[in-house]
Write a protein that binds this DNA or RNA. Structure first.
Lengths: 332, 332
DNA sequence: TTGTAGGCGTTATCAA
DNA sequence: TTGATAACGCCTACAA
């Protein structure tokens, strides 16, 4: 808990020189800088957070708002929190958590008390409360996810559409003519934003190819959904669904004696879980949290510097990983 | 972003009167208070966080340190984070997240920069790095969980021993003479703190009763573990294990035509998941996060006021919930 | 019951 | 390249 004046005395310089040496906002001679750094080291100096906020007009804190919804997938969510935390620390920022009732109300509070320099919005619902709040708040706010009414907002999200297109292209290139998608359980298409985006991208593509629309969400079991796909004569399947469904599908195919990729080709799209954990290695275009979090932080930092950055949606590029679940030869 | 002097002017009083009216640290006449509150309302005044920290010597922030370990059970973990956040907000505090590498290193940083008033330590490992740090830090720190070397630390945890005793008593009172415990997968007894505590409490009790030690961790499947228990002639089982194992056990019993509680009595101990979700309603002594979080915050607040509170372990009382999975009559 | 004023530890402006 | 020093916005003795 040493103060800056103690460091200054120990280094034999003025307070302001210490401040500038540490912030790097003014050139300081090498010798002086060295003495200051030594003093900082010896005294274990850490700038007082409150004083720095008050004088510097920067808190070095981002708020992370995340309502813990009933349908939130905990492991995925944790991965995003971790990703945000890592991204923030990289630029010298800490994360302040706004959960539960405070997920919305807290945004107002931390913004107008100047507790945080920016806000990252997680676990975004289509009709999210926080959309209205974000518009009325005067500090940089970035959504990770895309709410329905996103005009004027800054959003970052995985490019689900692009990922589906990419998977589709791969299957087409492998010679598949009947391609299906096994989707999430029905209700996910109402409470979340990305399942319908993936589905629509897929259907749109089928329509463009004038092919039958073979999209099957999970109604009862993944097994039944798989049945529906197979009886429609599908040879290439895009899995845009839960971890459990992934497991069921690979297992069921094995039990039926259907080989991957010889009989059926599979590509997983948008998975947040570890696709390597199944018996069958799967080609995948996973949803990795870190790039989205990095981009969100990057945008806030730009806003903090420039004060000029157009609202809009920033999509994170899908990345394809091959593991041999797509046939390279032409399928019958 | 109105300031206190604007509020003072609007209310026609001095700055200090506004401050006192809002903090309640000095009596303020009803009329004056009313005018001040109106002004606050009208201007949307929120005290500046940095200024308040600097002048008030209180940041109104707790750090929550949580390394995201590979074996961390995400839903449980989220429940604790939420619980801590709720407990903190009740006393006007926010939560600053310290994850990953910062879970340890960050403690030092936020303590010596005066960014937080106290630290809550989550996801405690038996040989936790943060134990040494906690000892060297001069702000209130409370562990939720009990590390091996806990001398001199303040810890809060669910009373697993007491919970096991309670479950045991219930089964004894119901007339069971052969009681078994189905534990966690083997490895959990090395990386976590509470599984061994529950196991040892159980074995100790059996020894006291001079009964055969019937404790079975999960080696391969819960089914196999259940087999071992049944073939040992057990009629009462304490489930101190995972959600999956709970599900397997109830399902397996049903498939074997064994009725609960007529043939077998079950009590779930220390579950963090929803015990109501199984086909068979289970008597349970669950591990509920909120009371632990509340107690942790309470302890920090006391430390912040008194500056005198002995180190030690604070156990949270187990609560038994009856749902009819324990026979009330004497078993054969 | 209310007001005055010093101080909290930095940052950043203005001088030198 | 470095030093004084005035903010920053609030809290809280001390006075009245």
């Amino acid at each position: 808990m040493a103060r800056i004046d103690e460091v200054a005395k120990a280094a034999g310089v003025s307070i302001s020189t210490v401040s500038y040496a540490l912030s790097g906002k003014r050139p300081v001679s090498t010798g002086t800088r060295q003495r200051i750094e030594d003093a900082v080291q010896k005294l274990g100096y850490q700038a007082n957070a409150g004083a720095r906020m008050l004088a510097g007009n920067r808190t070095q804190i981002f708020a992370l708002t995340e309502p813990f919804r009933a349908d939130t997938h905990a492991p995925t969510h944790m991965a995003f929190v971790l990703g945000a935390s890592i991204a923030a620390r990289r630029v010298g920022y800490d994360i302040l958590l706004l959960t539960d009732a405070e997920a919305s109300a807290g945004m107002q509070r931390v913004a107008s008390s100047g507790l945080v320099d920016g806000i990252i919005v997680l676990d975004v619902a289509p009709d999210d409360d926080r959309v209205a709040l974000a518009r009325s708040i005067d500090i940089p706010t970035v959504f990770i996810g895309i709410p329905d009414e996103h005009a004027g907002l800054l959003c970052v999200d995985f490019d689900f559409e692009g990922a589906v297109e990419l998977a589709f292209d791969k299957l087409i290139a492998a010679g598949h003519e009947r391609i299906g998608m096994l989707g999430h359980p029905e209700h996910a298409y109402e409470v979340s934003n990305f399942p319908p985006r993936a589905r629509d991208a897929f259907l749109g593509r089928l329509d463009a190819e004038s092919t039958e629309r073979i999209f099957v969400p999970i109604e009862t079991t993944a097994r039944a959904a798989l049945d529906a796909l197979l009886s429609a004569g599908v040879t290439g399947i895009i899995l845009q669904t839960t971890q459990e469904a992934h497991a069921e599908v690979t297992q069921e195919l094995a039990e039926r004696g259907l080989r991957v990729p010889d009989d059926i080709s599979l590509i997983s799209v948008g998975a947040t879980f570890d696709v390597d954990s199944f018996d069958t290695p799967l080609d995948a275009i996973p949803l990795v949290p870190q790039p989205s979090c990095d981009r969100a932080v990057e945008l806030i930092m730009q806003l903090l510097e420039d004060r000029a950055l157009p609202a809009g949606i920033h999509l994170i590029d899908p990345i394809y990983t091959e593991r041999g679940s797509v046939s390279h030869a032409r399928v019958l």
